[in-house]
Amino acid sequence: MKIESVLLVDDEVEFVETLAERMRARGLDVEYTTNGKDAIEFAKAKTFDAVVLDLAMPGMNGIETLKVLLEDHPDLQIILLSGQATVGEAVEATKLGAVDVFEKPTDIEILVKKIREARAARLALEERHALDEIDRIMSSKGW
């Protein structure tokens, strides 16, 4: 059985390492990085069901990383985590395409549930794209 794959991005090494260990214990395939630039490279190399992204990071912050990730992979399910997100930041992230914004500390069970939902949403989008492609081909052939 396929398991949910998630990329965690947070500049607090101890936080992200511990969260990764706890998610792996719950059966998830987890990779992590501490900056947005690396996250973009990770997402190019592998298809993730979800990306859990910290808002405040050195260099590229969460919003900037979110924009690039969604430009490269429009169907990517991105969940933002924030220490103290303002309402404005949460609204901006959602408008840009984040599927959810959570305040830290977040209950791991809620986060894992959200990642599982993200996988289902990603697979549904993939299926829809495949059906659209079939429709397009059939239309082009006059069927």
């Binding site: 607090e12 101890e14 936080f15 511990t18 969260l19 260990e21 706890r22 405040a56 220490g83 103290q84 830290k104 500390p105 791991i108």
Partner: peptide, 17 residues
């Protein structure tokens, strides 16, 4: 306060672990 929040978040995850 952000730094302190980071500390509490780490403690939260470690306690969870």
């Amino acid at each position: 306060s952000h730094e302190l929040t980071n500390v509490l978040n780490i403690i939260n995850e470690l306690a969870g672990l």
